[in-house]
C-alpha cells in the first residue's frame, strides 16, 4: 500500500526530526537552511506468542548539519512508542562528554507526551499571542 507506506515514512521522518530537534535544541530550528530534510524508514510486523501483534518501525534520519556539527539518528518505534534512539553519528565541535546519557535519552523519549502546562523562560504577552495565533491557524 503505497499511501500507507508514505504515511509511515512521513511519521518516522517527523519523529526522527523532532528527536533531532530535541537533541540539537535550537540550532536546527535557528539554522533551517543548514538542515537536510530527508531520511529512510522501514517497518516490520511480527506476532508474539500470545497472539498480539507487535509492529516495529525503524527510521534513520539523514545526517543533519548544524552549526556545531553533524548528527544522524536511528529511531525504533514499537506499537507507536519510541523504544530506542541511536545516534549513528554525532559530533559537536565544542561539546563536552555526556555526564548523563541516560537522562538525555530518557528526556528525548518523554518528548511528545501530553501535558497540562508549558514551562519556559518568561514569555512576553506578545510572544504568547503569536504562539496562540500559530496554534489556532494549524487547527484551521
Amino acid at each position: 500500500m503505497p499511501s500507507s507506506r508514505k504515511f509511515i515514512t512521513s511519521t518516522i521522518l517527523f519523529t526522527a526530526l523532532s528527536v533531532g530537534g530535541a537533541v540539537l535544541i535550537n540550532d536546527f530550528v535557528l539554522n533551517p537552511e543548514k538542515a537536510i530534510v530527508a531520511g529512510t524508514a522501514s517497518h516490520s510486523t511480527g506476532s508474539a506468542g500470545t497472539g498480539t501483534t507487535t509492529k516495529t518501525l525503524t527510521g534513520t534520519s539523514d545526517a543533519i548539519q548544524y552549526i556545531y556539527g553533524t548528527i544522524q539518528l536511528k529511531v525504533t518505534q514499537v506499537n507507536g512508542k519510541i523504544t530506542a534512539i541511536e545516534e549513528l553519528t554525532a559530533q559537536a565541535t565544542n561539546g563536552r562528554e555526556q555526564a548523563f546519557p541516560t537522562l538525555k535519552s530518557a528526556a528525548i523519549q518523554a518528548n511528545g507526551s501530553n501535558f497540562g502546562n508549558l514551562s519556559g523562560a518568561t514569555y512576553t504577552t506578545d510572544a504568547y499571542k503569536k504562539a496562540l495565533d500559530s496554534a489556532l491557524a494549524k487547527l484551521g
Binding site: 535544541i25 530550528v29 528526556a107 507526551s113 501530553n114 514551562s119 519556559g120 514569555y123 500559530s134
Partner: peptide, 26 residues
Amino acid sequence: GELDWRIGVHQPISIAEAPDAILTVV
C-alpha cells in the same frame, strides 16, 4: 485534572517562533 501533573518543558526557543518545540515532559 488528567494532565495537571504533567508539564512540558519548552526548548530554548521563543514560543513565538516555535510554539510546539518541546524539550521534554515531566
